[in-house]
Design a protein around this nucleic acid. Sequence first.
DNA 1: ATATATCCTGACCAATTGGTCAGGATCAAG
DNA 2: CTTGATCCTGACCAATTGGTCAGGATATAT
Lengths: 226, 226
Amino acid sequence: MTVTKLKKRRPKSELGPPTNGNRTRIRARNEDKILDAALEVFADYGFKGATIDQIAARAGMSKPNLLYYFRRKRDLYVAVLERTLDMWLEPLSAIRADGDPAEEIRAYINRKLEFSKVRPTASRMFANEIIQGAPLLKTILHGGLRNIVDEKAAVIRGWAKAGKIADIDPYHLIFVIWAVTQHYADFASQVEAVVGGRLSDRKFFRETETAIDHILLRGILPTERI
Amino acid sequence: MTVTKLKKRRPKSELGPPTNGNRTRIRARNEDKILDAALEVFADYGFKGATIDQIAARAGMSKPNLLYYFRRKRDLYVAVLERTLDMWLEPLSAIRADGDPAEEIRAYINRKLEFSKVRPTASRMFANEIIQGAPLLKTILHGGLRNIVDEKAAVIRGWAKAGKIADIDPYHLIFVIWAVTQHYADFASQVEAVVGGRLSDRKFFRETETAIDHILLRGILPTERI
DNA sequence: ATATATCCTGACCAATTGGTCAGGATCAAG
DNA sequence: CTTGATCCTGACCAATTGGTCAGGATATAT
């Protein structure tokens, strides 16, 4: 009833990109290519610095075609952030309360460093966003991230209370681990300028891992000195 | 000879901002205000994200007036970077080879954390630049920074050889200290989202300093365990 | 007081860029 | 093969923004 409904074809302006239910093969493939390209470009230039043209070119398509899948630049940006957030959090989630404390922490450090090696752009994209005050991530930070950090901090606090690790504030412990491991992805250009090494070099990766494990787990001072 | 030189007044287009020799009082004051404003805005939005209008407004002047002092956005950006570089490097420079190693390193860590407290925007501005590959800082990184790091790394290596500190690669030691201390400035929004603390709070600053000193100097594992 | 250098402004321009749109090409189902 | 949905494109638009410029206001030295 009401208005005419003769034309089943929905008007162009209305549908645009979004589809009815399930995604087409073409759509799935193209969205993937776009998200990959967008991650690179956003990580390199930040939200404002990146242009849709750049991303589209990298994804091998025209700008209007990209806009067909993601109507707004911001939509694309958010999609990329969400897509990488799980990977970013996974190493922390994997900490087990019933494992050996020292080993769990060492494994966590190494997982984070591994992430910096294999997904440096994802790390840099988050870094860009957070440094600028996380205008879009803010809700996520207060929501999911905060909860999982609280949970794992409680676990670590338990270990400290039990004397399994030193009596350190668990939140700062987590921050320190984030800071150190992410540094090698986010500030890679600086690291490379100073020592000429990249995590993708097996040798440099091992050196880095060794040094970080040593400093964080055993500290800078010599054993005898304590 | 050659062309007429009757008009002593140099053409507007030629002089524009630059002055002959010494800076005027007005000029000095305005350049200062501009650089202060620019630091804030560049730190918050990055090079491309910042607009000259924004910076001019924050400095309390019109855009053409700002352009009168800094003809190009890039000139201004570089000027800000150079202005803060010394402060950024100073804590490292202050390390003395003839001091007590443990105390020197602890003091260095604390100086860097202090810097993150009092000049978080300077820290964030560098972070933005370096994350994006340091297109403009690159030469500086390879030049001055690299040299001073090499110098201090040699000092630290000497301490390690003498058994005054643990046998750790000095470059990674420096990177770890940078990473941790700068994290609290660069990723302040994340830190605040998770634990609700800022370095500007005296209490939180002390907690942070304690935790960092403990982790870096004595390590995460309990003493008995070593 | 006056002249000259410095400082400041409104108006303006051109390049970039996010986003739109009408219509054509292609695909998939019947 | 037909038909409707999906996919893609060239042309275009409007807002933003870095930068220019002619000329007026102000300071400063003599």
